[in-house]
Amino acid sequence: MTHHGDLPAPQQGLLLTHFLTVRNVEVSRQFYSDVFGGEVVMEENPAIVKVANTWIIMNPGGGPTPDKPGVTLEAPRSGERVSSFLNVRVADIAAFYTHALAHGADFFTEPIDRGSELRCYFRDPDGYLIEVGQSTGLLAGIHATTPMKSN
């Protein structure tokens, strides 16, 4: 199944997609379509899920190719150290949190008030870190990075 009209192919300019090297395409495709309410655009080779105004592209790893010599793609080996993560902004973090929990997301904590935003983290089936945040104080000019104290 391919929905050609929904493929990430701009008519002009550019658009950003996010490519993930995954261990199991079917599991990851289902996770991103369920947790984020994404639309499966391509089942595999690669799998593409349209999520809001972006696309998540998933394929197994592999060795170097002529256009990326010396580069091997592989899923994360460990979750303790990361160099990048998916940052998702939502309008209603409580609703997203409830929805994601119901679809198997395993959050580190409930959303925490950081002053400028409400935020929480979880991992996908391959261990990729995902931040979910809702701007709150940031919209009022608050740029705090520590939790707000309640009295």
Rank of each mutant, 00 (worst) to 15 (best):
H3R: 12
G5D: 14
D6V: 05
L7D: 08
P8G: 14
A9L: 13
P10S: 11
P10W: 00
P10C: 11
P10V: 10
Q11A: 13
Q12M: 05
L16Q: 11
L16A: 14
L16T: 11
T17G: 11
N24V: 01
R29E: 06
F31V: 06
F31T: 02
V35R: 07
F36S: 01
E39T: 14
V41H: 02
M42R: 15
E43F: 05
E44M: 06
E44L: 04
I48R: 02
V49G: 04
A52E: 09
A52I: 01
T54F: 10
T54W: 07
I56N: 00
I57M: 15
G61K: 10
T65V: 07
A75W: 09
R77D: 06
S78Y: 05
S84A: 13
F85Y: 10
N87H: 12
V88M: 13
I93H: 03
I93A: 09
Y97S: 12
A100S: 06
A100C: 05
L101Y: 00
F107P: 00
T109N: 12
E110G: 05
I112W: 01
I112V: 15
D113R: 02
G115M: 11
S116N: 13
S116P: 00
L118D: 06
L118M: 14
R119I: 00
C120R: 05
Y121P: 01
R123F: 07
D124R: 11
P125M: 07
P125C: 06
L129P: 00
I130N: 01
E131W: 00
T136V: 14
T136H: 04
G137Y: 05
L139K: 13
H143K: 13
A144R: 13
T145P: 00
T146Y: 07
S150V: 04
N151Y: 05
